[in-house]
Design a protein around this nucleic acid. Structure first.
Lengths: 224, 224
DNA sequence: CAGTAGACTAAACGCGCGTTCAGCATGGTG
DNA sequence: CACCATGCTGAACGCGCGTTTAGTCTACTG
């Protein structure tokens, strides 16, 4: 998202569209609104992008590229995944809010671009967990792909349902207080789990007829 | 969702609206489409409900009531929360799909009804965890409300991003195979957590200056 | 049997939408 | 200078939307 006021009209239109699509949704946003926000005529929006739907596609690409770009920048320096990037962006204040809003809407819409983006997040999460397993800081699952899927889903839920999250947090994800309140319970869950013993797990294993070779990872929780 | 064909027109309109709003979204659904699906004229839709927006409100109420009704039916017999109801409904096949689709869209929209519904889910989750803590099957968190919030968020993510979930599962949540593939890794995560030691947790505790009386629950994972 | 209330429809209204069109500046190129 | 591509606009077009209106049919009430 460029903050400079005098960009090319093409860029200003795209920025305005991302902002409006993200905050109101595509359907509730008219070409005229975008044109106003960008300081151009509605006709110019169509002139440059062909149609509203093509503009939407260009916004999708732009946001995906942003994710990829920031990801390589940060990740190479910190060894983190796109998930971590998002948490970084969330903590970075209002600056990235339009992007994150857009991302959240994109993830709840269906379509090829949405699927490709989500699956990439799962890939990165899987790689991150594999690294964690390798250096002994994370538990191996009986199905690492699905484990990564679940973790990704959980991570994205804070984005997609941020309104509910922040309301219950009694403050934004942005201010330190809200984030602080979230951090500990989340780490507790990811460290100790929810269940205090492996009863449910054992029952499910038995019911599903999983072989004992399924790859258990248990740290030693009691069976009952 | 009533399967009987000859209901009153009011009910048929509401059923059609829930189905279409759920599968396409409110904005992409026209009053004319709803009227067609219900076998009535567009004017009758407005005659009975006043406006499209009021119809949407009636659908919201209807779905919320369905959640409450099914919840008391099942929960009293099984001691489970609305979350469990949803998992039940998911497993129950195509029958509840329109309701669940609608629910998912409702949760990603903002508005009073959406907030009230979500917060009720959190309440129920909190009560369920409190019961689990009381009988020793679940871990107490340093902040039970936020713990319940996180668990609720995670549970809802399977609804809200079901398309991504099912695609990565290689099959529906409905067929036994897909559900089975999900169950074990999820229980593993909720039993053993993701992290194999409490290093991250301890670092966060220290950084946030949490007092030692914060209510640790750890089962005994090593510090490093 | 007349009267009336409610369910229901065909047709139309007005509006805002995405989009098109004709034309006006501007500025680099022969 | 003439030329034309490019950036851009104001006005308009056609369409589908939510909604209104005027009226018909049906069934119950006195």
């Amino acid at each position: 998202m460029s903050s400079v006021a005098d960009l090319t009209a093409i860029a200003r239109i795209r920025d305005a569209a991302v902002r409006l699509f993200g905050s109101q949704g595509v359907e509730r946003t008219s070409v005229r609104q975008i044109a106003d926000a960008a300081g151009v005529s509605p006709a110019l929006v169509i002139h440059h992008y062909g149609s509203k739907d093509a503009l939407r596609g260009a916004c999708d690409d732009w946001v995906v590229e942003w994710v990829a770009r920031e990801n390589t920048e940060y990740a190479s320096a910190r060894g983190a995944s796109a998930i971590a990037l998002i948490q970084q962006a969330v903590a970075d204040g209002e600056r990235y809010r339009p992007l994150l809003d857009y991302l959240a809407r994109m993830l709840t819409a269906d379509g090829d671009r949405s699927a490709a983006l989500f699956d990439r997040f799962v890939d990165e999460t899987e790689a991150m967990i594999a690294a964690g397993v390798a250096d002994g800081t994370m538990n191996r699952s009986s199905d690492p792909r699905i484990q990564a899927l679940i973790i990704t889903l959980n991570g994205m839920s804070t984005l997609v349902m941020r309104a509910h999250l922040e309301r219950n947090l009694g403050g934004g994800l942005l201010d330190a207080a809200g984030l602080a309140r979230l951090t500990l319970p989340m780490l507790e869950l990811y460290t100790d789990g929810l269940y205090s013993n492996s009863q449910m797990l054992e029952v499910a294993r038995a019911a599903l007829g999983a072989s004992a070779a399924g790859g258990a990872t248990t740290t030693g929780k009691a069976n009952a």
